[in-house]
Write a protein that binds this DNA or RNA. Structure first.
Lengths: 159, 159
DNA sequence: CCTTGACCTTCCTGTGCATGGAAGGTTTAT
DNA sequence: ATAAACCTTCCATGCACAGGAAGGTCAAGG
């Protein structure tokens, strides 16, 4: 009696749970194309297939996909996401490892912000010095041409 | 005798003005590989060739390369640099066009800075809340997994 | 004269992160 | 029967180069 109920429930849940790639795409907000891509690079495990060859996904795939989405949204590379996923699935992980990964990523972000801000400052200065009228004279072009002032573009030569 | 000497000298001088790709690379700090690439996509005009098929560059190419370098250093895309180069070479340009291009680029940079700063703030917050010890508990992973905060409770399922 | 090594050439592949499309099979609805 | 809405694989594209293979060229030295 009891066993039969459980079996029934299991079968029912089992039958209800699988979804095709389109549904997973809708549920996750990640395109079917990208889901296949994630599978191909190992971010998602290879989905099982139904008789017609269609991929069948489970709820766990949806969870994984959402995890990936959030991590990518924070700028983590696919490689980092792979690492984060493995840490997530590892009950024996230490949070220090996760934190270290996050910090390395933050440093990377900081570098990029600094680079962009340097560019922004230079551009802002140049734009302010450019009249922006119908005449051809333009300090922006002059500077790019290396006319007079030495502009530090942030990327120094290495020779 | 004399004529031959002069001819020799002329040829030698002529030969001195042009440079091979290696020298241009050294003088500009741009790799030979990249110089060829720039030529292939039209950033640099097709270089003339000497009898052996080697590219021969002039000082004008060096100037152009430096222009490209500075523009790239300011984050302009290759496409934008193409535009900037054409404006640079156009005596009938109006500085307003240059300025507009620069401003569009600045807006783009601002957007990227904002995005990165948002990521940075979130990461910083998560990192602060993570103990970073030998235990597995980690708010970073919890957040990526969608543990607590604003996770839709999934009451709008539709199959 | 021949070799060595530093040049140079073209062509193909790989990077990161997908996106777009072609060509075709399957399922469902009308 | 046919359309539409799915699904499949494989190939191409974009950015801005870098790496390397396979081979031609040139100057110096034994």
């Amino acid at each position: 009696m009891h066993g039969r109920f459980i079996l029934h429930t299991v079968i029912k849940l089992w039958g209800t749970r699988g979804m095709n790639i389109g549904k997973l795409a809708k549920n996750s907000g990640v395109s079917a194309k990208t889901i296949r891509y994630y599978e191909s690079i190992g971010l998602l495990p290879p989905a099982s297939r139904s008789a017609n060859g269609y991929r069948v996904f489970e709820d766990s795939d949806l969870q994984t996909l959402r995890f990936i989405q959030r991590a990518r949204g924070l700028g983590f590379s696919v490689k980092d996401v792979l690492h984060l996923l493995s840490l997530w699935r590892d009950p024996g992980r230490s949070s220090s490892e996760v934190k270290a990964l996050a910090r390395r990523h933050m440093e990377h972000i900081d570098t990029r912000i600094d680079d962009l801000q340097t560019m922004r400052r230079v551009l802002d200065d140049l734009a302010h010095r450019c009249h922006g009228d119908s005449h051809p004279e333009c300090p922006i072009l002059d500077t790019l041409a290396g006319a007079n002032a030495n502009v530090d573009t942030g990327s120094e030569e290495k020779s």
